[in-house]
């Protein structure tokens, strides 16, 4: 294919105490694609995401993000990597005591030496990009859930990261806001070329944004499907994958 892998996960094993959550996971994420991690509740999606952003070190295996092995790198390298990635948390995770412009401006002020006035202009550009111009002086408590996510996205994109991670972006949003957020993700991916890794189980979102998906399974603790979402829905031979995509209840397995 000739595509460049920007994230490489090799034989990853994740454990909480004695409980194995993920067992021997291996996959690549390619530059510029929208990559979706999906699966039922409790299958380890969020755990995998935490490994990809370095919040948890793997029990075994390697996680290489943009050339740095985050499972085994020094703090300085990891700090530099953090400036090349952005994360949109489920709730937006905006700082409640700061206005939206202060939230978005925080990483720009911290990591660049732009003049204050230029920071303000850049912040307004970022907020315009997520359709929040005019809300610069609002506090997070004064805006809706969907707006919080968009503001969180503007903050995650503040330093133009190479990779954006999304944790359940559609969670808690009404269908229209959810569709709008999906459109925004597609638009940003196309216009900025940012690689996006999304953890979700919202099928509508998956069909709309995903270039490639992997599906995790609670029972095998591994990947049971990988590829194009619509192809998997129509052609997968795995029973659970078929049930999942066709929104049928998972059968109790022995």
């Amino acid at each position: 294919m000739g595509r460049q892998a920007i994230i490489q996960v090799k034989d990853l094993v994740a454990k909480y105490g004695e409980d194995t959550i993920l067992d021997n996971i291996t996959f690549d994420v390619y530059e510029g694609e929208i990559f979706v991690i999906l699966g039922g509740s409790g299958c380890g999606k969020s755990t995998l995401l935490k490994h990809l952003i370095g919040l948890i070190k793997p029990y075994a295996g390697r996680v290489i993000v943009d050339g740095d092995d985050i499972s085994n790198c020094d703090d300085k390298t990891f700090q530099k990597l953090l400036m090349r990635i952005g994360i949109l948390y489920q709730s937006g995770a905006l700082f409640g005591s700061m206005t939206l412009s202060e939230n978005v401006g925080l990483p720009i002020e911290e990591y660049t030496d732009l003049p204050k006035q230029a920071v303000d202009t850049l912040v307004s550009m970022k907020l315009r990009l997520v359709d929040l111009d005019g809300y610069e002086n609002h506090l997070p408590s004064e805006i809706s859930g969907g707006m919080k996510k968009r503001a969180g996205l503007a903050r995650a994109m503040a330093l133009n990261p190479k990779i954006l991670f999304f944790d359940e972006p559609s969670a808690g949003l009404d269908p229209i806001t959810s569709v709008e957020l999906d459109d925004l993700i597609n638009h940003l991916n196309r216009s900025l070329g940012t690689t996006m890794v999304i953890v979700t189980h919202e099928l509508e979102s998956i069909y709309k944004v995903a270039h490639r998906v992997i599906m995790l399974d609670k029972r095998t603790k591994g990947i049971i499907a990988e590829g194009d979402a619509k192809y998997l829905r129509d052609h997968s031979k795995n029973k659970f994958v078929k049930y999942f995509f066709n929104r049928q209840a998972e059968k109790k397995r022995q």
Binding site: T121, S124, R128, L129, E136, S191
Partner: peptide, 21 residues
């Protein structure tokens, strides 16, 4: 041109970026 249009370059700079209340 595409990037400038996404960022609404034409209107940027015409007014104060962040109007302080």
């Amino acid at each position: 041109e595409k990037v400038l249009s996404v960022l609404s370059f034409d209107v940027l700079g015409e007014r104060s970026a962040i109007s302080k209340s």
